[in-house]
Simulated scan of single mutants.
Amino acid sequence: MTELEKLAGKLRRFAEVRDWERFHTPKNLAMALAGEVGELLAELQWLTPEEAASVMDDPEAAERLRSEVADIMIYLTRLADVLNIDFVEAAHVKLDKSDRRYDVETYRGSARKAPPLA
């Protein structure tokens, strides 16, 4: 069993013993995930690029960022579990598609968007 599978099981049990499964719908979990991403963004919003690059050097800011990233991981893991998505596998599949879509010769050093794959 992977660490991610252990985490998903722990989160599933956490929700079950509190009778929260009825609240953990895909819509609600996606909304909660978006909210947590917003909280992470708020931590970085007004920082200069230099400040953002060194934000983890500030212990208090680092703890806030770790907490927000943990919340994101928790909601994403729970959402994937509820939807029965292996999100590590899904990420590999998506990366493989992106590898084909953004060939190195054409897109190296470029931020432009590629056309959809046929």
Rank of each mutant, 00 (worst) to 15 (best):
A42H: 07
E89Q: 11
G38S: 13
K97V: 05
A61C: 04
L95G: 07
E36C: 05
K97E: 12
S67V: 15
I74H: 08
L40I: 08
K94P: 01
G38C: 12
D96L: 09
E51I: 02
P59W: 12
E63C: 13
L83I: 03
A91Y: 10
A91H: 09
M56A: 10
E36P: 01
S54P: 10
S67A: 15
R66Y: 15
A52M: 07
A62G: 01
P59D: 12
E51F: 05
S54D: 14
L29V: 06
A30L: 11
L44V: 08
L40T: 08
D86L: 02
K94D: 05
S54F: 15
T77C: 09
R101S: 07
V93E: 07
I74M: 09
V69K: 04
V88P: 00
L76P: 03
A90D: 03
L95T: 13
D99S: 15
A42M: 11
D71C: 10
V37D: 03
F87H: 04
A80W: 01
R66H: 15
M31K: 09
M56T: 13
I74P: 02
V88H: 10
V93I: 06
E39C: 03
L83Y: 06
R101G: 03
V69M: 11
D86I: 00
R100S: 10
I72E: 01
L41Y: 15
A80S: 03
A80T: 01
L76F: 12
S54K: 14
Q45P: 10
A61T: 01
P49F: 08
E50T: 14
L44T: 06
V37K: 03
E89I: 07
A91L: 08
F87W: 04
R64S: 13
